[in-house]
Design a protein around this nucleic acid. Sequence first.
DNA 1: GTCTATACACCGATAGAC
DNA 2: GTCTATCGGTGTATAGAC
Lengths: 210, 210
Amino acid sequence: MTDTRQKLIEATAEGLRTDGIAGLSARSVAARAEVNQALVFYHFGTMPELIQAATRAAVDENVIYYREQFAQIGSLRELLEVGRELHDREHTTGNIAVMAQLLAGAQQDLLLAEAGRYAMARWGEQIEAVVRRLMADSPLAGVVDPAGLASMISAVFIGLELYDGVDPVGSRAALDAVERLVVLVDVVDDLGPVASRALRSRLKKASAAR
Amino acid sequence: MTDTRQKLIEATAEGLRTDGIAGLSARSVAARAEVNQALVFYHFGTMPELIQAATRAAVDENVIYYREQFAQIGSLRELLEVGRELHDREHTTGNIAVMAQLLAGAQQDLLLAEAGRYAMARWGEQIEAVVRRLMADSPLAGVVDPAGLASMISAVFIGLELYDGVDPVGSRAALDAVERLVVLVDVVDDLGPVASRALRSRLKKASAAR
DNA sequence: GTCTATACACCGATAGAC
DNA sequence: GTCTATCGGTGTATAGAC
């Protein structure tokens, strides 16, 4: 990969982070990359294509970073810990902000939608694997849909990032609130086999009733 | 309120919905409102101020619409029902999309951040009241922070809206997944007093350990 | 691959006639 | 309150010299 391409890709992610999708332009990206503005179009054709390339590179890099950590998660408690670490870290690096701005722009642009779908799929498959593993021998095994839950977790990260931008205190409280609710799942998980079987039948009934 | 002001306010919400924050401009809004472009600045001064006025009006109107429905929610099951209805309805009307685009822009603009904070506060206080009421006589009363949970629910709506734009199937699965998890809370809620007391002590221990 | 120069549309915002 | 006209600047994108 040429130096200029790389510089443009990095400047684009940085631009999404700090200027947002509304403030991103070929001019601003080129200036940030200290590269001639015309090179944006020489290398990437159009702005959406550059954004696609940049966000794709960002998500590929970031997902790799967490692959090992994800593989070592063995309990819900650990998942929460890694989740909070990931949230804090990705929030300060701005990677979630990039994803949020991408998704905001994706609502009106087909190419950005494709890029957003790719990003969510990459994160989703990582998260899903962890959830699936953790749920395998839990009384919740039949109740939880790992793929759906993974999508929800991704959506929560995006939503919380945007929420944090307008109300950081509230976003902290929101994180704490789910953590405490997840403890509930943990408690259920730790129930004895009798209680666990009773719970399972109740859950079956409850799902059927819906 | 003059006719022109009203037209501009409505056109702004519509523009956020269909063009996104990145595609919104004084010219596009004025065209949509079939109003002279200079009137945007005569009536509102700057674009962010117009966006603030428009999103404020939108959230005020929409919150009122749900106030009655929220007041009638008496169980978690009903909360889920209203929640799904609200999500479906607000998603099709595009009101959540407006909020999502507002928050995306709010990350880079102080005035929009203020508008976003206002919107999240209005929704938050409504949701919090419901959560607080439902949790009052539940074994989870001490475990759940109503305000935090309300913030989380708001964030989920925003995140899910953006997620839906790139992967509608995944967003459906995500919604289904939490619904099934909430059933878990419902089951715990329906436990007898003995089991409930046992659970409460377990939860206390679990929270303390954190 | 990189540069300058440029086309042309659009941007927010203002001045001033009506 | 509304209009036209206009400012300076920025947007994407391209042509053509180097």
